[in-house]
Design a protein around this nucleic acid. Structure first.
Lengths: 225, 225
DNA sequence: GAAGGACAACTTGTCATGCAACCTGATAGC
DNA sequence: GCTATCAGGTTGCATGACAAGTTGTCCTTC
């Protein structure tokens, strides 16, 4: 019988998981500087080597970034998933978005709480007021994530925000197109209205129209084939 | 104007990316032992500390595993995505599956090539012949991934296989339920038939029925609330 | 007082060395 | 043939040292 080697924790692994936990729990907020290697060495009661190995691991995971002479800073609260790394066609990415977000709008319409509604409304108000395209893109992303959150299934917001981060570059370009902002705001309103009324079909339709408009804008309607 | 600090490569980062590349390219195959830290230290002309920091990073990414006294072994060719790590309710996972795979079946029906069809057929034949439940689960997973592949959108198979790996434990338990195997095979056949006939609606329906049956089996139909 | 430069203190990056713990295979003894 | 021992290789961890980058402070100078 083959004995499976028990993966017993090394000190470095222990420190790494502790650090990851501290970051993911928000104890170490994004942008914050971590304690220096020397301090961590004292805190964890291990040598600086171990701390450095753990720190390099956390860096590799994409959670932090170290700068010589300055320190190590939290870069993201959660490890960006490697799921969508690689070069995918914008068309394929949009298709995934469509496949996912249209039914999500319907689910959100059925399940949204009053809190969800308030959050979404607030985002849309900010969206209309905001002039800077790059900031508007961020609000837009938050709105779509908010819809996913309203489905009460925690997996959906993760998937949606993941997709958004991949599509971000294109989204910024699209947001800069003249007139697009007002159009987008109207489309968002339609989605929100349907969700507010708990009309699943209308929500799905509104989302479908919105995504089609976005894709049209991004793929430069001038040069169709 | 804010100057973005240029993330210049440290030696450890360089070694890490080299190792990752070697593993992903297959130069270091899964199961293979990596050169010892001392050897790598010579090869890369850096100290053992740097090698260790890089090695710990690759470990953290899930590509390798180190054992004291033995060496470091390649564990996976690609970093498993961290997207779905965490504790999610089976109900939520199944909902994601439903949301995703039902429309995928429709897309597959519209776009499948003859090659896709042959691959799927072969998998179903193997599925019926296989007695071992744990192996059957693997074939089942491959079948669902094959459907996603037939959509001609490379993102879908990645998403589906990711979901499957999370659901694997439950899937094995479900596959062991008496009679379930034959039922599952019939459901698979229905899906395949619809895809073969390019009937998108039928494919979506068949998939919907299949997933509902799976979820019923997994959630132990005895204890409904 | 304001501006600028020198300097000290702190930070990460890298190297070198030593030793403990662990695993494997060879070897000697029974 | 079987077992015990041992030697050599491997990773895990600690310590010390120095280079290089960053930042705040103090002091000089105007």
């Amino acid at each position: 019988m083959k004995v499976i080697p028990v993966a017993q924790r090394t000190a470095a692994e222990h420190v790494r998981s502790q650090l990851v936990e501290l970051i993911e729990s928000g104890e170490f907020a994004v942008g914050q500087r971590l304690p220096s290697e020397a301090e961590l060495s004292k805190s964890f009661a291990v040598s600086r080597s171990v701390i450095r190995e753990a720190l390099h691991s956390v860096n590799a995971l994409g959670l932090t970034r170290s700068y010589a002479g300055k320190g190590t800073f939290v870069d993201a609260q959660f490890a960006p998933s490697q799921l969508l790394t690689g070069k995918y066609l914008p068309r394929d990415l949009h298709e995934v978005r469509r496949t996912l977000e249209v039914p999500l709008a319907a689910l959100a319409a059925e399940r949204r709480s009053r809190t969800d509604l308030k959050a979404m409304t607030a985002l849309l108000v900010r969206f209309r007021d905001e002039q800077d395209p790059s900031i508007r893109v961020g609000i837009d992303a938050d709105f779509h994530v908010a819809i996913a959150t309203a489905t009460a299934n925690p997996l959906f917001p993760r998937l949606v925000s993941e997709l958004r981060s991949v599509l971000q570059e294109q989204a910024i370009a699209a947001a800069a197109v003249p007139g697009r902002a007002i159009q987008a705001a109207d489309e968002h309103d339609a989605i929100l209205a349907a969700i507010a009324e708990r009309d699943a079909n209308a929500a799905a339709n509104a989302m479908k129209l919105h995504l089609a408009a976005v894709e049209d804008t991004v793929t430069a309607p001038g040069r169709r084939k």
